[in-house]
């Protein structure tokens, strides 16, 4: 009984939130120009399913493209940074400074350079999701056990051997953990960019519907964004569990 409740609890909570939201809308009788109830939002999804599907797809593929770039460059830079202490020390302040800049501030520049369209969205997703990947990959390499390094060096291993045999495999849990964070950030990047300047995507749709006071459509788009985010998070959580099962098991080891 308790197990079943635990299994069902995510669904129960989701339903409860929708029910509360619906009840609040009915009790306070909000104007549909200000706030939409779940029934109105789901109604909008059914009514406008064609444009919603098209814009959802644009947001999904631009996010995935930006995220893919972030993974490629993030892993590469993370390996370089984790490889050498000098590079680590040199690049770290630069990266912190770069990461501190709110990405919203960069979007107008990207739009000036690349015009209205998908490219600024892809690049914003890339810029925002790239940092956690770099930091995690570099941390994974930097926290390698020095004694293990000694064992390998005493066998005549070169730095490259140590990286390939130990460094990179042990970085995997750090990398996959960061991907779950990065994919949600990538959605933030895409939608911010689409809201500021685009002609497609859920962010664009939200801005457009908002200016037309079509609140049900705005909330419909928000719901779809949430669904996309949850789905992608789940995909990467699955990949993580599949590739780094040893990291979860070994921490539970009886003999540490």
């Amino acid at each position: 009984m308790k197990d079943l409740l635990e299994k069902l609890s995510p669904w129960l909570f989701t339903i409860a939130i929708f029910a509360l939201w619906e009840a609040a809308c009915r009790i306070f009788n909000f104007s549909p120009f200000i706030m939409a109830s779940p029934t109105q939002a789901f109604g909008a999804i059914i009514q406008h399913w064609q444009p919603l599907l098209r814009h959802s797809f644009v947001t999904l593929w631009t996010t995935m493209a930006g995220f893919a770039l972030a993974v490629i460059f993030g892993v590469a830079l993370g390996l370089i940074v984790g490889w050498s202490r000098t590079i680590y020390r040199g690049l770290y302040p630069v990266m912190i400074g770069f990461n501190t800049i709110p990405k919203v501030a960069v979007v107008p520049i990207l739009i000036m350079w690349f015009g209205i369209g998908e490219i600024p969205a892809i690049l914003t997703a890339f810029l925002i999701s790239f940092f956690p990947i770099v930091v995690n990959v570099a941390t994974g390499l930097a926290t390698m056990e020095p004694e293990l390094e000694d064992v390998l060096r005493a066998l005549g291993a070169r730095k490259l051997d140590i990286m390939l045999k130990v460094g990179i495999p042990r970085t995997q849990p750090y990398l996959f953990g960061s991907l779950k964070v990065a994919i949600t950030l990538a959605f933030v990047g895409t939608v911010v960019s689409e809201t500021i300047g685009a002609n497609a995507g859920l962010g664009y749709l939200i801005a457009l519907a908002g200016s037309n006071f079509q609140m049900p459509l705005v909330f419909a788009a928000l719901l779809l964004l949430a669904v996309e985010g949850i789905l992608m998070y789940a995909v990467f959580a699955l990949i993580e569990a599949r590739f780094t099962h040893w990291a979860f098991r070994s921490s539970m080891s009886a003999a540490a």
Binding site: E145, D150, V151, L155, G156, V166
Partner: peptide, 15 residues
Amino acid sequence: KIAGMAFQNPNLLPW
């Protein structure tokens, strides 16, 4: 290059 080493911590690779 011809030495084997072992420490207090077994340092096995968990993967």
